[in-house]
């Protein structure tokens, strides 16, 4: 089983649905240690992606085309740091997926490219209570699953599980990057909203892959 353009489009639709469904949760997480706009921004951004996707006269030829549309739209519509961070993640992922189908190695390359984008743009490393804490274990889990011969849907499912575990592991951390770092020690005890939304995005990827199987 491989991942195709229809999967990529379904991933985007499921992402738009899940960030809208979890909007209030993300708003609350961000209100505690940030400026409270993460949920609104992501929901608005992915709604804009959907309307652009629906306006296309024919489906994109490559998975990378879908991800590039997500990248440019998020950069344009999502204020704050999340726009450029996710925008760069999707932009890098789109460059790694200039193809109509992805096998397990391709799925790994997608997740690794997204991690690379977040790290490059945010200049954060693991353990700083950011999106990186979700994407780093996700990439490691994807590599491990592919090495064990898992199909693409399993690679994404492993990545999604690891991302959620990574997000939950941000709770005790003290933020040293981003808006939450202004709070210092007081940022400990809260789930990082960017890590949480990253886990939601990867979960949507895995669900779309499972539905395609």
């Amino acid at each position: 089983m491989t991942l195709d353009v229809a999967w990529a489009v379904d991933w985007v639709r499921r992402t738009a649905a899940t960030v809208t469904e979890h909007r209030d949760e993300l708003v609350e997480l961000d209100r505690l240690i940030g400026d409270g706009d993460h949920g609104e921004n992501l929901a608005r951004g992915f709604a804009a992606v959907l309307s652009k996707l629906d306006a296309l006269e024919e489906p994109p030829a490559q998975i990378g085309d879908v991800l590039r549309l997500v990248a440019t739209t998020l950069m344009s519509t999502v204020g704050g740091a999340a726009g450029p961070l996710y925008g760069t993640a999707y932009l890098r992922a789109s460059k790694a997926t200039a193809t109509s189908v992805l096998d397990s190695e391709g799925a790994v390359a997608l997740v690794e490219a997204a991690l690379d984008g977040v790290v490059t743009r945010g200049k954060a490393g693991p353990g700083e209570k950011t999106m990186v804490d979700a994407w780093t274990p996700a990439a490691a889990a994807a590599v491990e699953a592919a090495d064990h011969g898992a199909p693409p849907s399993e690679v994404l499912a492993s990545a999604a599980r690891a991302a959620q575990e990574g997000a939950e592991a941000t709770i005790p951390l003290v933020a040293t990057k981003g808006r939450a770092s202004y709070l210092g020690e007081r940022s400990a005890g809260h789930l990082d909203p960017g890590a949480r939304s990253s886990a939601l995005i990867l979960a949507a990827a895995a669900e779309a892959a499972a539905a395609a199987d």
């Binding site: 204020g79 450029p84 760069t88 932009l91």
Partner: peptide, 14 residues
């Protein structure tokens, strides 16, 4: 501030 840098760098990447 912060995201102004990121947005600018994103533009240069695009």
């Amino acid at each position: 501030l912060g995201s102004a840098v990121m947005t600018s760098e994103s533009v240069l990447e695009a």
